[in-house]
Amino acid sequence: MAAKDELGRAGESRAVAHLRNSGYRILDRNWRCPQGEIDIVADHHGALVVIEVKTRSSEAFGHPFDAIDERKAARLWRLAMAWIAEHPHEARGRRLRIDAIAVTGSDPATGRLEHLEDAL
């Protein structure tokens, strides 16, 4: 596995731990469909939350949230709709929101974690 992939996987694991500690119930991880992948799907106080995780070893090339541009945001909403279509029982009657988590540092286990609720 490439170092970049290992960093990303470690960042996602850290994000899941943070979410669980914050009262989120994880429904799905790394869900794939033809349009792409959702990092994490969770329940938080009755809301259905799609979470995009960006992990970087530093901010040398910008903040991790900078990678979530308009195109990526639109894609996340389309992916959320695809997830809902495949899991209607989980989505029924829930508010949908998209969160973003940034993990920055050479070691994701100890790096800075930032969580933006309702980011998009």
Rank of each mutant, 00 (worst) to 15 (best):
2 A>I: 03
3 A>S: 06
3 A>C: 00
4 K>G: 01
5 D>M: 09
6 E>V: 07
6 E>G: 05
7 L>H: 13
7 L>V: 01
7 L>D: 07
10 A>I: 02
10 A>W: 04
11 G>R: 07
12 E>R: 08
13 S>H: 10
15 A>Y: 08
15 A>P: 04
15 A>G: 10
18 H>E: 14
18 H>W: 15
19 L>M: 15
20 R>M: 14
22 S>N: 14
22 S>D: 14
23 G>T: 12
23 G>N: 12
24 Y>L: 12
24 Y>N: 04
25 R>G: 12
26 I>C: 13
26 I>H: 14
27 L>A: 13
29 R>W: 07
30 N>D: 15
31 W>A: 09
31 W>K: 06
32 R>E: 13
35 Q>E: 10
35 Q>D: 09
36 G>D: 11
36 G>T: 07
37 E>W: 09
37 E>K: 11
37 E>Q: 15
38 I>F: 04
39 D>K: 03
39 D>I: 12
45 H>S: 13
45 H>Y: 09
46 G>P: 06
49 V>Q: 00
49 V>L: 02
51 I>S: 02
53 V>G: 11
55 T>F: 05
56 R>A: 15
56 R>Q: 14
58 S>D: 14
59 E>F: 02
62 G>P: 02
63 H>E: 09
63 H>Q: 05
63 H>M: 08
64 P>F: 06
64 P>Y: 03
65 F>R: 11
65 F>W: 12
66 D>F: 04
66 D>K: 10
67 A>V: 09
75 R>H: 11
75 R>L: 13
76 L>W: 01
77 W>Y: 07
80 A>S: 10
80 A>M: 01
82 A>F: 00
84 I>A: 03
84 I>Y: 01
84 I>Q: 04
86 E>P: 00
89 H>M: 05
89 H>V: 05
90 E>M: 08
91 A>P: 00
93 G>H: 06
96 L>R: 00
97 R>D: 01
98 I>W: 01
101 I>F: 02
101 I>S: 01
101 I>N: 00
104 T>L: 06
107 D>M: 05
109 A>V: 00
109 A>G: 10
110 T>A: 09
110 T>F: 04
111 G>M: 08
112 R>V: 15
112 R>L: 15
113 L>W: 03
113 L>E: 04
113 L>M: 10
113 L>P: 00
116 L>G: 07
116 L>A: 13
118 D>Y: 02
119 A>L: 08
119 A>Q: 06
119 A>C: 10
120 L>K: 05
